[in-house]
Design a protein around this nucleic acid. Sequence first.
DNA 1: GGTGCGGCCTCCCGATGCGGGAGGGTCAAG
DNA 2: CTTGACCCTCCCGCATCGGGAGGCCGCACC
Lengths: 280, 280
Amino acid sequence: MLAIGEFSQLTHLSVRTLRRYHDAGLLEPAAVDATTGYRYYSPDQIPTAQVIHRLRELDVPLSDVQRILRSPDPSTRATLVADHLQRLESELDRTRAAVVSLRRLLRPDPAALDVELRTVPATTVAAVEDDVAHEDVLDWYAGAMAELDAVVRQPTGAPGGLYDNALFENGRGHLLVYRPTAEPPRSGRVHPVTLPAVELAVATHVGEHDDIDVTYGELGSWVVANALAVAGPVRETYLVGPRDTPDPGAWRTEIGWPVFRMAPPVPRGPGAVERRPRTS
Amino acid sequence: MLAIGEFSQLTHLSVRTLRRYHDAGLLEPAAVDATTGYRYYSPDQIPTAQVIHRLRELDVPLSDVQRILRSPDPSTRATLVADHLQRLESELDRTRAAVVSLRRLLRPDPAALDVELRTVPATTVAAVEDDVAHEDVLDWYAGAMAELDAVVRQPTGAPGGLYDNALFENGRGHLLVYRPTAEPPRSGRVHPVTLPAVELAVATHVGEHDDIDVTYGELGSWVVANALAVAGPVRETYLVGPRDTPDPGAWRTEIGWPVFRMAPPVPRGPGAVERRPRTS
DNA sequence: GGTGCGGCCTCCCGATGCGGGAGGGTCAAG
DNA sequence: CTTGACCCTCCCGCATCGGGAGGCCGCACC
């Protein structure tokens, strides 16, 4: 039996941390003196303590560590651990993207962005839509696009998506991906949707999506500078993407921000009702 | 001028977060209405907001973000950013090591560790020592070893180190690295030190140090199982290391834990004083 | 000019995981 | 028994984010 200080030396976990893990039910001492409250650990607990230590180094939350330790058979355990490693991978991707994006932001003199104002008529397309949380977007997108591809046989244009602004503001929002086709089918999650007519401020993003936020920002600046206001979900159109060519440098994504001309500060005739709608 | 909600849409930062960044002095709105407290942002602030967003994605603390933004010339800025990328790199290393170590811990049936009890006489060696914080250990070690190598011309044995237990318990502790030699010189930080005689429980760790903590734990179990107690700083001896061969699989590190035989629970004669010292 | 609702404000609290420190009991060498 | 290291509990602070309450503001609409 080991006092907490000795156990601390053997496991390289601080005494404080060991007490916390006890309170959290993560690593119960083999014995606790009922009168003094002294914790005593068994040498058998060293491996467990080390597993906890390593998982914490991987930023696995304590609750998940507990779940891993509680799972009795090694295969469940291995699965849970593998899930976390997966999470680490995707975090790494995110980090990589942030670095790319940051580089572009800090570049001394960025090239001016080409923005085009385009009037888009209402269109009926085959679509998949859902309310999705920010962190699930990539997975959801992959699934939805795959389903669209499987169902839509004869697309008449590039695929695209509509992304609710609330997605970024509140962490979740309404997403819609679509593929234009002559006779939009109804199958599984796929169903016909009529996209409303809008006026779009359109810019084209070149390359991977790592730094697409920068293009978003530049487009946003342009919109504001031209006395327009944002109205409704952003539209992305995937002109050239990974499905078309493996070369990321050739990818082209159109970003279209629905805009409304701000009402000029002059008296208007009774019929000329053109208001800036609420941005929802 | 943009209200906070519009600015939020353009930058993909939540309204709450924008307010926090204002309070923190990170991103001051271009104008604040004195009577209502309404924040108004200029489109020029979009790039700044995005830089903040990206830096935060890289887990740069707000205070450092502020420092980066406040630094006027781009080269200082680039240096600060590069420092953080450096930090990310080393974190990545740490993560990789944790994964390796975890794999070994979760291996179904680990091979039993060979432990040897060895009596080591007092030795005078050339040493560099210091109080070092946990996170600085690797850098300190590299510098100290380099200095030793430069000064000690004719080593008579493998290099080694003594590592205070407090290093792991409290996050900082006393470190000493040494090289045995016939006439320990005194030069710069290098000076002669007499290592006290100890009885060591010795195990050999094979390969990189990623999972050396696991070996530590197994050695610790052995020590406790054999009714010994830890006394004093751990000793590592680098029998074969990166300086000897580039093949990590051939590296050999001896871990020696100073131990004291626990006093048997029988009355002792007056001269037979053999006590378990306090572990400090 | 009034109304309604969405946007904005401030302030407080919780989660997370770690450490610092106060105040006091326990253990074992001498 | 004394002494000093060790252990206990409890409270607070850190950083960053989100939730929610309670209330003012502004703008489209009538």
